[in-house]
Design a protein around this nucleic acid. Structure first.
Length: 263
DNA sequence: ATGGCTAACATGGTTAGA
């Protein structure tokens, strides 16, 4: 049976307006078939659709003023686009889903949570519960499902540069990790860990205190795959190169490769 | 050292990120 490669990426760009040149430069060499963005921070009317069309991308976006904002883009048609979590009232634009080459892709920007004692943390956990219910139903409908994005949860202490300093903090707390684990218990797999990876593999580094230079980061940007899709995964890497560029996003893109059936 | 830096909105200083 013949297969075709499918390279799927997620990138929190921290303002698409500022990072459009970075995206253009990265796409020129990264050979990406589909891409989920987070923190576009732009209303849909201002979304740079023409610039992305010029890069050979199409798809959908779901943004708001100042905060949040997601986009799902691909080199082939993106169909059945759904914005937000159906049935969950949320003023924040954090999810967009679509189907690309037979793969259902759900792009998420999970709430940060700010601090354990914050209302935003309560919102984060409630939001993750709504996401879990949504994904349970999507798993039933779509054997080939990818859930990608900025999860704002480091799955394990391996994914934290200083586990002691981060212990019990937002992004590593037990309740957040349990919420992520419950997604994995439904069959979604963090494909990054299917493969041998370098020590200190992270996807986010604080802008402050030379965190990137010190390799003081967290791995919070993930690509989860359903069993049938995970079985087709041939690799997953963090591309740290754009984090070295001038005026970078604080997140690096993560890329997973799949061999899809070519029927 | 509880700061450090960046972006949006606004046009000085606040909010938010993680």
């Amino acid at each position: 049976m013949s297969t075709l490669p499918f390279r799927l990426a997620t990138w929190n760009v921290n303002s698409l307006k500022v990072r459009l040149p970075h995206l253009q430069q990265w796409l020129a060499s990264a050979s990406i078939d589909a891409l989920g963005l987070q923190e576009t921070k732009t209303v849909d009317a201002d979304f740079p659709g023409a610039e992305l069309t010029a890069l050979g991308l199409e798809g959908g976006w779901y943004g708001q003023k100042t905060y949040n904002g997601v986009a799902l883009l691909a080199r082939s048609p993106v169909t059945d686009i759904v914005r937000g979590i159906p049935g969950y009232a949320d003023e924040q634009t954090r999810v967009i889903a679509g189907t690309v080459r037979g793969v259902r892709v759900i792009d998420c920007y999970v709430p940060n949570g700010q601090a354990i004692d914050s209302d935003k943390y309560t919102y984060k956990l409630a939001w993750l519960s709504a996401l879990r219910d949504y994904l349970a139903s999507e798993l039933e409908r779509h054997p080939q499902l990818a859930v990608i994005g900025d999860f704002n949860i480091a799955p394990d202490d391996r994914d934290v540069h200083d586990p002691k300093a981060w212990e019990g903090q937002v992004l590593t707390s037990a309740a957040e990790r349990a919420a992520l684990a419950s997604l994995c218990q439904m069959g979604l797999e963090d494909v990054f860990r299917r493969f041998e990876q370098p020590e200190k593999s992270y996807s986010w580094w604080d802008y402050r205190a030379m965190a990137f230079r010190r390799k003081a980061g967290l791995r919070i940007d993930l690509i989860l795959a359903s069993p049938a899709l995970a079985a087709r995964c041939t690799g997953c890497t963090v591309d740290v190169e754009p984090r070295r560029w001038e005026r970078p996003s604080d997140h690096a893109p993560v890329v997973a490769s799949f061999d899809l059936a070519a029927d």
